[in-house]
Write a protein that binds this DNA or RNA. Structure first.
Lengths: 223, 223
DNA sequence: TATAACTTGAACATACCTGTACGACTTGAC
DNA sequence: GTCAAGTCGTACAGGTATGTTCAAGTTATA
């Protein structure tokens, strides 16, 4: 708990015990982490399974979370939060195509895990809550796509929401291919980038060649 | 039953009663159809739910299908069969880009429903059975993509399996957008086609303009 | 160290889904 | 019209998941 609504820290639904014991905090952490892993693998993992994976008793879990929905919410919030944190370090300025490549490189496997969790969330959480959690990460990509359109390097004949969705779909597709053994992790980012850049290219303009990434870049290595 | 292995019609797993009564056949038909709808909406729909949607009693369902897996198999087989049937009428000759557009136009919503069913099937059916059912439809697209590559209009720097998967992912994405209310059915095929054609364009070559479909085609309308 | 917070396994109540069995009723086919 | 085939509702058994309660044991913190 307290992972999402920690703005005022004034109305905890649990008894007035403001600060939990170190022991309890450790258990909660283990539970949330185990939930992310288990639900990522199987959206309908039971609470017993999650508790066992966390190394705590089932009763302990119920001592901290009053329902399954609360566990799912905590796991989802945490995953999104961590993902957002990691993504904030990515430089999205400069050529939108390069920026998109960097974004994909940094996020494709995060997006996959978040998506697996999302399947569980969609069955347990109210739709409003899901949109609320998803709003942050989505906004950054939307902004990037919009900038690419304004600069004329991304197509404008399709809605932004569609393009963002295509990007996510392609990322998800890569994760599926990996699970099926038809793709290796090293090639994933390259394939996703090549596909997305082509899909985003305005009609009539040439598809960009597979860039050598930042092999001889100016802002990456030492002088 | 008998919806999939109707080649020799010689070894029905059910008792020697070769022909069922009209009444029974009607029930079976209703159940399979209801199963396709319910499982398409929710992969873990219960048999009670399916029976209710079919307008029959739960016991009747068990009279025709001995297990849940059998119901899923029948629904999946039927959907694939119908889809394959519809797809066989599509002309995949000529310019691969035009052929792909025709294929998308005819199949995008079928692919979505089949995919929703597939989620249910993956939890209930042995993997071999799934590949067996999926082999037919997948082959046609693969062939088309391969031909496009050989003719130089589709890219060859990505694996065929990847490209086919991207196409399916984009189709699925469209279905999701429609469910979310961000896209209307009329625009779906156009968006999918525009996205896929761009994604398949070889690097360095220009992305095809959004063709006016077969507005002034040579092989479609009357002279 | 003393106390309250925390953890634990076992047990309980509830609910749902699966699959099966029974007796009574309706309907199709001959 | 007859009779088997099909259907129906109810009820049972076995399984699993969700929450809750309880009486004990353990551990952090003051």
């Amino acid at each position: 708990m307290g992972s999402s609504r920690n703005s005022t820290d004034q109305k905890p639904p649990t008894p007035p015990a403001a600060t939990k014991r170190a022991d309890a905090r450790r258990s909660i952490e283990a539970i949330v982490q185990a939930a992310a892993v288990c639900l990522g693998r199987n959206p309908e993992a039971s609470l017993s399974e999650i508790a066992r994976a966390a190394g705590v008793g089932r009763v302990t879990l119920y001592g901290h979370f009053s329902s399954r929905a609360e566990v799912v919410d905590a796991a989802m919030s945490r995953a999104l939060e961590q993902g957002n944190e990691a993504l904030e370090g990515v430089d999205l300025t400069g050529d939108p195509r390069r920026a998109l490549a960097r974004y994909i490189e940094a996020s494709w496997h995060l997006v996959d895990q978040a998506r697996a969790l999302l399947v569980a969330a969609q069955r347990e959480l109210p739709p409003g809550r899901i949109r609320e959690l998803h709003a942050g990460p989505a906004a950054r990509v939307e902004t990037l796509v919009a900038r690419g359109r304004a600069e004329g390097v991304f197509r404008t004949d399709l809605p932004i929401s569609w393009m963002v969705n295509v990007l996510h779909a392609v990322m998800h597709s890569a994760a599926e291919e990996i699970r099926a053994g038809r793709l290796t992790s090293e090639h994933a980012a390259g394939h996703i980038t090549a596909t997305a850049l082509a899909a985003f290219t305005p009609p009539g303009k040439p598809v960009p060649e597979a860039g050598q990434d930042s092999a001889r870049g100016a802002d990456d290595g030492a002088p």
